[in-house]
Design a binder for these strands. Structure first.
Lengths: 345, 345
DNA sequence: ATGAAAGCGCTAACAT
DNA sequence: ATGTTAGCGCTTTCAT
């Protein structure tokens, strides 16, 4: 009979080894599905583990090998798009021994640095950074310490993999949809950006570029009209107010995100106008809110689930082979037309 | 000049000690603000830490002492109410050395067990379980291993603290508001629950009880009418369809959650009825969606931020004094009347 | 007030 | 195929 020295002491690998009458090495190997264990050994050890209800101490494992933990940093937890990414991620990681832990509330570079550091301190085996706003340099530094995949940010790096939607195409999808309906005065509300790093890499900036390019391609260059605010409901509200006050009002507004579209709809209602009769509105992200029938907002679906799944796969790859060249995966968004867009009068 | 043996080796406490010409014990004490360090020592060590950019290895700390990590388990990340709780939590923990990590995607008991185990394996210093659905027994077992606070679940335990809104009052707030407006046929859509544990402890069940009690108190016992579905948009849609098909249609529907109200509004629009002219609708949670002006949904605000702040404080208390008796904090929700409720015709 | 040294639970060389 | 053993980077007695 194995008698633990203290009644509530946690079972360790030594207890298991003793119980199974084998060495701790053997137990460790079974735990890690390592090479060189006989079937007999397997069974003996697994049975001892089950009988004792043993669970490995992650801190101790972390000191020598892996922690079997993947850190996911995301800017906020309310955006449903992030939830989709997370679903793809966890489904992909479901069969593995890895556990996902989220670093919450990262708005601002300081917060992001805090979370990434915290994750590195905790010896995460890999990290997935979702829509980070930090300087490239910081991302590179993180990625040079731990296998990293950056999601929802363009630009390619020699140290980290990236997965993102093709926002250039996404912006064009909306413009073409509206132009096909017959609109010419198509305005856009963007998230204001000045930092050159981010202008080249952040989805919001690329979406705005997609809008511009598509407007030009459709011969509507003269109608390019951008309100530069923020990707918030408030930003949408203020942006729409600006646009509605123009001498010649736009007949359609392309909001850079669904949350922005919420503010736009708000301002339009306040101005006594109707959607889509007086003005068409399109968003981006295809959130639950957009699908909500009384709203029925035309939006762009970003394939969040696939993004998450790809990111997980890339990360596992990179953990297995840290040296391999980086990959950049770009997924195609799709337009989901709904009742908020219609031909102009 | 201190020369690290390997170029990219992480700085350890030994490096710091050598650099500052003191013992590792001294460094450790400074790190933990422990007793018995002279001001001189403080400065020397802090300077060495800064110069070397040292950060403690959490895994190593976890083997002997604390990990300075708090695990937060939450059912899903899309509910804005949870985001508020999280804000309160992180703000409260902001000044401390603790880092919050979230366990995502816990729908179902199996998932919850997986996450709580993972957190225990990783030697979290404390855990906050938000709206868990697991059996009491499991919660108790977690709490007996690591300091734990349970949020958004009623019932009191000798091993864990609880923080929750007073859902009984919340349900009554809505009924009284509608009754004051002159409604009698006030129906409710609840989340179906049969497990006796959960009937007594889950907020959804308590809300339904609050509805029943308040209806009786207002002399409207004969008008009690409950559709039992789920707390989802789909559930709201189906529940509303049931209610609208009644021989005498209710004049007001109290949805147990805002997300449910979304489905209700959907079904009502589909039936060609108007809100609030034909039927009043109230939700619960006061989400962004409810505040959105074109919707303007009467709802109950749960003081999520305060819940989070209280939970954090209780947890820190418990970490400091594991033996102290448990506390049950109950916060009062408030009604936020909006345009979706009006007197019946 | 300060430091030397033991050891937390595990993994990885290195025997055998 | 299996076991022995030396650490990983900290915290914590226990000396001084």
């Amino acid at each position: 009979m194995d008698k633990p020295s203290s009644p509530s002491r946690r079972i360790t690998i030594v207890d298991v080894a003793r119980h199974a009458q084998v060495s701790t090495t053997a137990v460790s190997k079974v735990l890690r599905n390592a090479y060189g264990v006989s079937p007999t050994m397997q069974t003996k050890v697994r049975q001892a583990i089950a009988e004792l209800g043993y669970r490995p101490n992650a801190a101790a494992r972390g000191m020598r090998g892996q922690t079997y933990t993947i850190g996911v940093m995301l800017p906020n937890i309310i955006n449903p798009f992030f939830a989709q990414i997370l679903d793809g991620l966890t489904d992909q990681l479901g069969g593995t021994d890895y556990q996902v832990l989220l670093g919450p509330g990262c708005n601002g570079e300081a917060e992001e640095a805090r979370v990434t550091h915290a994750m590195i301190d905790r010896s995460m085996d890999g990290m997935i950074l979702i829509a980070p706003i930090s300087a490239r340099k910081h991302l590179e530094s993180v990625a040079s310490t731990v296998p990293t995949v950056v999601v929802g940010r363009h630009g390619h790096s020699p140290t980290y993999d990236t997965v993102a939607d093709d926002d250039l195409t996404g912006g064009a999808l909306v413009v073409n949809h509206l132009a096909d309906l017959g609109h010419q005065r198509i305005a856009h509300i963007e998230h204001h950006e000045t930092d050159p790093d981010r202008l080249a890499e952040m989805p919001n900036a690329i979406r705005a570029a997609g809008y511009r390019h598509a407007m030009q391609a459709r011969g509507l260059a003269d109608h390019i009209d951008i309100a530069s605010t923020t990707y918030t409901q408030e930003g949408g509200y203020l942006g729409a107010q600006q646009l509605l006050a123009r001498p010649t009002r736009p007949t359609a507004i392309f909001a850079g995100a669904d949350i922005v579209a919420m503010g736009v709809l708000d301002a339009i209602a306040e101005a006594g106008l109707r959607v889509p009769e007086d003005i068409s509105v399109a968003g981006y992200d295809n959130t639950t809110f957009a699908a909500f029938r009384p709203i029925s907002l035309t939006s762009v679906d970003q394939a969040g689930y696939q993004i998450g799944a790809h990111a997980a796969r890339l990360l596992l790859d990179r953990i297995a082979a840290r040296g391999r060249p980086t990959a950049q995966i770009k997924l195609s968004p799709t337009l989901v037309p709904r009742r908020s867009t219609a031909p102009p009068r």
